[in-house]
Design a protein around this nucleic acid. Structure first.
Lengths: 249, 249
DNA sequence: CGATGACTTGACTTCGCTCAAAGACAGTGG
DNA sequence: CCACTGTCTTTGAGCGAAGTCAAGTCATCG
């Protein structure tokens, strides 16, 4: 009955979004007024990039690229959720980030991808060859500035991730993840939080054991802060205490 | 007797480095051969930036800028060490990064700095007004690409930081910090690791209590892996086991 | 040499990890 | 449609390690 895909009422929005070309969301360097995330690309830039990019579809669980592979392209997510991770020598898996629509991934080091990226839900992504992109940068330095802006934004996200992991209590970490999922979810369904990934993925992102994630969920339920409807849906029951928990780092 | 400054035999190297203009070290996107860090800027670019930048000196402990302040400039470190941190609502302080020579900081979000940056040692930094830099980017997209490269490199560092914090054992985290300090220290003094910051700074970076840092130090000594000469100097005694500990994430 | 801040050590508590076993779910093929 | 099967999830018991509180030592600077 429940699938890993987004709710059906979203496919329409996705389709129109795709027609407008790739989009990057972030916080511009100098926009003094803007408090939140905004579209970084102009209409012209999006149309231009749309001509340079190829649209690719991946089913859930499909690996987009592996760590260490030749990095010949970067990707912008049109729709779907992916995880970016590395397997450590100890056998543990570290999820570095969950990435959503309008996020950028595939920025390389020394010509190689550093993390493995795998689709969690069905994924639509714009693929941009690095040589093509470099050429576009040369012609439009302003476009490059937007990409720089997005990279800095992801740097902030990574720093935020370190803050999440630094929390001692598992329930606080879990609350911050739910908060992130809520921010990235459809603005319409504000009542429910869609959890696309498995408990194991959550544990690897939060740097917890799988069991600790489950126990933290039970604790949030026991305290009446969050209800876990099923494996992939949660509902914030007490907004005030939830926000307090998220903020009390 | 001991001061927080770098060893004296370094001032010469620092002086010559400063004459050559600002420098950014990182891993280029596409250099397939290069395994390690290289200079990202060309001689021409460094000279150009040197003309656009003002050189600033800060004593140890001086705050370069505070989180939330108007972000009118970015900085490149010529010599010295700084910490980039935020104070959290709980009263805890999170050190997001230690930054060294050839590192970049001050990339803003919405016209405001996000972290506070404070000098740990006496600091020499190149100050680049954002308007001036944006203008330079417009004329030299290649220069902008190098900055993008550096930003991505710092993104990797932030992800690495999350991996460090994710380790369960304090000794492993401490070993990774020492490893980082060794990498960024003078190539000459390979025997000793210079620790410029306080135990409290280390704790705030590693997401440990101050006491846990001390206990982890004692443990490394007891195991014969590292000697702590004084508060600001350590010596790797058993390289093999040290490297194994660093790698066994 | 006294004051202040940084560091060290010990005792006790808490909470997450490991191991183990059972329960719920989705996809497969009969 | 249903049993089968592997994966994902949940729960419990015991252990270990980091946090907290408290007391003290060391160092550095006036």
């Amino acid at each position: 009955m429940r699938t890993v895909t987004e709710p059906a009422n979203h496919s329409g929005a996705v389709a129109t979004a795709l027609q407008r070309g790739p989009s990057l969301r972030g916080i511009p360097f100098r926009d003094l007024a803007g408090a939140g995330l905004v579209e970084l690309l102009s209409e012209t830039q999006r149309h231009h990039l749309a001509r340079l990019a190829t649209v690719q579809h991946f089913p859930a669980r499909r690996v987009v690229y592996r760590a260490g592979a030749d990095a010949d392209a970067v990707f912008i997510i049109g729709a779907g959720v992916v995880k970016s991770f590395r397997d450590l020598p100890s056998g543990r898996r570290r999820v570095a980030a969950f990435l959503f629509a309008n996020d950028l991934f595939g920025l390389a080091a020394a010509g190689r991808y550093v993390n493995t990226v795998q689709a969690i839900t069905p994924l639509t992504a714009y693929r941009l060859e690095v040589s093509v992109l470099a050429d576009a940068f040369r012609r439009d330095p302003e476009l490059e500035l937007r990409f720089l802006c997005k990279a800095v934004h992801e740097l902030r996200e990574a720093q935020h991730h370190a803050i999440i992991i630094g929390r001692r209590h598992a329930a606080g970490r879990l609350a911050m993840l739910l908060h992130m999922l809520e921010r990235n979810g459809p603005a319409s369904a504000r009542t429910d939080v869609f959890i696309p990934m498995t408990r194991s993925d959550m544990a690897n992102y939060l740097s917890l054991s799988l069991e600790a994630v489950v126990r933290a969920s039970r604790r949030l339920e026991r305290q009446g802060i969050v209800d876990f409807i099923d494996r992939h849906h949660a509902r914030i029951r007490d907004r005030q205490r939830f926000d307090a928990l998220v903020a009390s780092v």
